[in-house]
């Protein structure tokens, strides 16, 4: 859990859309990666400094599966 006074950026990936293309992983390496089976693993809450990278990751997802808040 992150303390409420530290600004975070939250991502949500719609698993029913995600096809494991891994494009997001190249934009925000600290947040998204593919495991050995090609399944996406991601960190839901990240420091706000990652926001630009995460927005880029959402842009390049071919399935438009990533939501950023």
């Amino acid at each position: 859990m992150t303390a409420p006074d530290i600004p975070v950026v939250t991502v949500y990936v719609d698993r029913s859309k995600c096809q494991g293309y891994g494009q997001c992983c190249f934009e925000a390496e600290d947040v998204f990666h593919l495991d050995e089976d090609g399944k996406l693993v991601y960190v839901a809450d990240s420091d706000i400094s990652h926001r630009a990278d995460i927005v880029n990751a959402a842009d390049v997802c071919p399935m438009q599966a990533i939501t950023v808040s």
Binding site: G20, Y21, G22, C25, L34, D35, E36, D37, G38
Partner: peptide
Amino acid sequence: IDRTPDLIPYR
């Protein structure tokens, strides 16, 4: 083909 995670070092 069916090896996407292994392409990362190539990229």
